[in-house]
């Protein structure tokens, strides 16, 4: 029996290339746990909404904020990250806010759209995802401490970007407006025509 393994196998094979959003969330290479779980207040949610909306803004279809990205990121961090990962994310978020205020003299939430975008793109260039490698050893275990710990600022940004993309493109807006979504395709065409500019079909099924 192999259940959904074919899908998993293909995914595994294809994910050898660079991806932002993997089947597992980005696991940090933290050496030790510190702090307790992150607590997100309304200010934090508002900040995460603005961060998400800067990464995926309103265009002809609504962006990440409209899809509720702040609440989504907070939930995912609280439910799916380990305490040390949560602490890393929270620390990175706090550092980000501080850095932004230092540079522009105001909070990110109150900031000017062009400055917010420029600042996030600086971080984007600095904190690129590396190609995801196949994992060695026991699956499902936390990654071994590698000695190549990533700084909290990097972990924060990568997690923010991954969760924004995941949350947006699996939201109702993302599935049905940003992409094309058909719950029951009813048929398969492996040779359908595609013209540049057409939006992709939603295919990530879990």
């Amino acid at each position: 029996m192999d259940m959904n393994r074919r899908q998993a196998v293909i995914k595994m094979a294809l994910l050898m290339g660079a991806t932002v959003v993997g089947p597992r969330l980005l696991a940090a290479e933290f050496g030790s746990g510190r702090g307790s779980s992150a607590r997100f207040g309304t200010d934090d949610i508002a900040l995460l909404d603005e961060l998400g909306d800067t990464i995926i803004p309103d265009t002809d279809v609504p962006g990440a904020k409209a899809a509720g990205i702040g609440e989504f990121i907070a939930m995912m961090v609280n439910d799916c990250l380990t305490p040390s990962e949560q602490a890393g994310f929270a620390d990175g978020l706090a550092g980000f806010s501080k850095d932004y205020r230092k540079r522009f003299g105001e909070s990110f939430v109150a900031g000017k759209p062009a400055e917010r975008l420029a600042f996030l793109n600086e971080l984007n260039r600095r904190n690129q995802h590396r190609p995801r490698q196949a994992r060695r050893g026991r699956r499902g275990e936390e990654p071994a401490v590698s000695g190549r710990e990533i700084p909290n600022s990097t972990y924060f940004f990568r997690t923010l970007k991954e969760l924004t993309i995941l949350g947006y493109f699996t939201s109702e807006i993302g599935c049905t407006q940003a992409l094309r979504f058909v719950e029951v395709p009813g048929r398969y065409d492996g040779n359908a025509d595609y013209r540049p500019g057409e939006h992709n079909w939603f295919t990530e099924v879990r």
Binding site: I55, I56, N124, F169, G174, A178, E198, N200, T203, E204
Partner: peptide
Amino acid sequence: QSWTREIAELEVGAPLKEALRE
């Protein structure tokens, strides 16, 4: 490839969003 892919050269914001929609 779907919206899960990395597009390292792309800036976040509208360019990233529109690219991942295709």
